[in-house]
Amino acid sequence: MKAVRPGDWLVIAAGLLATAATAAAQWGRGAPAMAQVRLDGRIVAELPLTGTHRIALDGALGARGQTVIEVEPGRARIAADPGPRQYCVQQGWLTRAGSVAVCAPSHISLQLVGPDGAHDTVAF
């Protein structure tokens, strides 16, 4: 008897389909649509993640320099900040909906938002 029989192909195909469908459902919706920039909790800029943008704004440490936010298709980052520890800059490019970079000394945050609002927080 043949080792691989017609029903086997059917089951394997169903398994592939189930794996692909769960992968798409679980991992596919992380694509962010918008970058929100907040200063003192208020949204000061909303940048679509389709083009390239670069904005500079004065945060709470304005006297020491500006905070620079860069947006490229599908990702955004804080390119520069006058804060002493540079946590938000070192976080690098944000690519997933819901991820946040916070420059606490400057009172500035950058958050990526998905098409359906995504999550309130992301915990690691």
Partner: peptide, 15 residues
């Protein structure tokens, strides 16, 4: 069994 062999049954059981 001649239609659905050990491979198909194994995959179904694994899922």
């Amino acid at each position: 069994w001649h239609w659905l062999g050990p491979i198909g049954r194994s995959v179904a059981a694994a899922f």
